[in-house]
């Protein structure tokens, strides 16, 4: 990176950099028939947790090598990762997405807001986290959790 790489070969250099940076799992990748599908739903927070999950799903982290894949349709999802303080308006959306997921689905609260509202407890517009709708059995702490924290927690949850 110390040499300024411009000119006709710049695209090749950029591609080589991206290949070199490709993240790899330090530990042995888990053996699964297929990756665990993650559907991410923001329900009214600062968006910090959602953006960290987006970073985890980007090129700098080894989400897929760890056996997970982010999906765009809840029908393809195994786990619902819920971020944000759960506004009252969003409750209907959470229910709609949850119902669209296939059997065997799993719900995970990501970040302080999603568990109990964090800095945004129950009010006229918010329910104060997922706990207002259902017992929170699986959660990932942080405000916001870093992509490394998220990946580590997802792996631990996958291992049961």
């Amino acid at each position: 990176m110390s040499v300024r790489r411009t000119g006709p070969l710049s695209l090749l250099y950029a591609f080589m950099d991206a290949t070199r940076w490709r993240p790899s799992m330090q530990e042995t990748a888990p053996r699964r028939e297929r990756p665990i599908g993650l559907y991410v739903l923001e329900t009214g927070g600062c968006e910090g947790c959602f953006m960290e999950i987006e970073s985890l799903n980007g090129s700098a982290f080894a989400l897929e090598q760890a056996g997970f894949v982010c999906v765009n349709d809840p029908a393809d999802a195994d786990w619902l990762l819920l971020t944000g303080a759960v506004t009252r308006v969003c409750a209907e959306m959470v229910d709609r997405v949850w119902r669209a997921m296939p059997p065997g689905r799993c719900l995970i609260a990501v970040g302080a807001c999603a568990v109990d509202g964090g800095p945004f407890p129950a009010g006229y517009a918010t329910l104060g986290g997922l706990q207002a709708l259902t017992p929170v059995r699986r959660s990932i702490a942080g405000c916001p959790p870093s992509p490394e924290d998220l990946l580590r927690a997802l792996q631990e949850l996958a291992q049961g």
Binding site: T87, V89, F120, Y124, T126
Partner: peptide, 10 residues
């Protein structure tokens, strides 16, 4: 509305 958390009131 879905993103409103009542910040001013808080």
């Amino acid at each position: 509305g879905a993103a409103h958390r009542g910040l001013i009131a808080r």
